[in-house]
């Protein structure tokens, strides 16, 4: 197992390098191939009516005129050993992993992402607990009571959950529970360490909205998996042995049905940790998702590159954890 983890971690590093190369190429190389020169690129980061000298100064300050391999090398070097940036009156040190220096805000990217990370973590982890518990429970009960009113009703709700986009359910929930009936007024992020109760209260709506979508998916997935598993021969054998029904369902049925759930959960959680974009934008939560949106709107290439790398990192790590968890769920799996 240890060898497997080390092997996967090394693979992760290579994967991240490939992701960084592709992302870097998309944002820095493709515009050049499309005919955009570095002067034109620099004009995006200057105010209205810039003089040629002003654009050239920005081009130099941002290092845009340097060869691409040099810019990429500088980026990688910053991740490993950090980087120094000229702030005019002195040098600002950006410690590793330094993901570059924002073209817009003239600040290192990494500290900005770090300050946004707790918001996304709080949102993703809280919502994932809700949807995992809710979705799997509903899926199991629906499968066990196939054709019942509960089954049809819950699957109907699940269908609605999958169909309704977050920006719709989010705005509706805000309108109803924040403005019309101010049960959760003034939804803003308060850190857990500042006030745990306020932290939870202000995140309830985003959690529910986000979990509603995912729980619906998980309920349907769990139901399908349970239905398939519960019709297997070994379930019949377990019952024939006289095992209690709870043991049959939980230990033999659910455990087997959970394997695909864990796979998709790893992917979903990894993706969310990279930024729950729509939820964060809808609820004005300053997490990585909102950071990403602003970076794209501002064409801030270092920020886009940084957040892409971080999202890729989360996805890869989440998948690694899932792979390890397989072995726990399914004793046949050995590494």
């Amino acid at each position: 197992m240890i060898t497997f983890i080390i092997r996967r971690l090394i693979g992760t590093v290579f994967l991240l390098i490939v992701v960084s190369m592709i992302t870097f190429a998309i944002f820095f190389l493709l515009p050049r191939l499309a005919g955009q020169n570095t002067y034109q690129l620099a004009t995006q980061y200057v105010g209205r009516n810039p003089t040629r000298e002003a654009v050239l100064q920005v081009e130099q300050q941002l290092g845009l005129a340097d060869p691409l391999y040099l810019q990429y090398g500088r980026f990688l070097r910053g991740i490993v050993v950090g980087a120094h940036y000229n702030s005019g009156t002195g040098s600002t040190y950006c410690p590793p992993p330094c993901f570059g220096y924002s073209f817009r805000s003239q600040q290192p990217v990494w500290p900005q992402m770090v300050s946004d990370l707790p918001v996304t973590l709080s949102l993703a982890i809280g919502a994932s607990v809700l949807w995992l518990v809710g979705g799997v429970s509903i899926g199991v009960i629906s499968a066990l009571r196939r054709g019942s009113f509960f089954d049809r009703f819950s699957m109907g709700v699940a269908l609605a959950g999958v169909s309704l986009p977050i920006f719709f359910t989010g705005l509706i929930s805000l309108e109803l529970f924040s403005y019309k009936w101010p049960i959760f007024p003034n939804v803003t992020y308060v850190s857990f360490t500042t006030n745990p109760l306020l932290w939870a209260r202000n995140l309830v709506l985003p959690w529910i909205v986000l979990a509603f979508l995912y729980a619906a998916l998980y309920a349907r997935l769990t139901r399908a998996g349970m239905l398939e598993t519960m019709s297997e021969d070994y379930i019949r054998t377990a019952r024939a042995k006289g095992l209690p029904e709870r043991t049959v369902i939980v230990k033999h049925g659910l455990r087997s049905a959970l394997t695909p759930i864990v796979t998709i959960f790893g992917m979903d959680l990894g993706l969310l940790l990279g930024g729950a974009i729509i939820t964060e934008v809808t609820f004005s939560l300053h997490g990585l998702g909102l950071f990403t949106v602003m970076a794209i709107q501002n064409q801030d290439l270092p920020e886009i590159l940084g957040v892409t790398m971080l999202a890729a990192f989360f996805i890869v790590i989440a998948n690694l954890v899932v792979d390890i968890f397989y072995a726990v769920l399914d004793p046949r799996v050995r590494y």
Partner: peptide
């Protein structure tokens, strides 16, 4: 203008 590119 390298440090303050956004103003007039």
């Amino acid at each position: 203008r390298g440090l303050f590119p956004l103003g007039p």
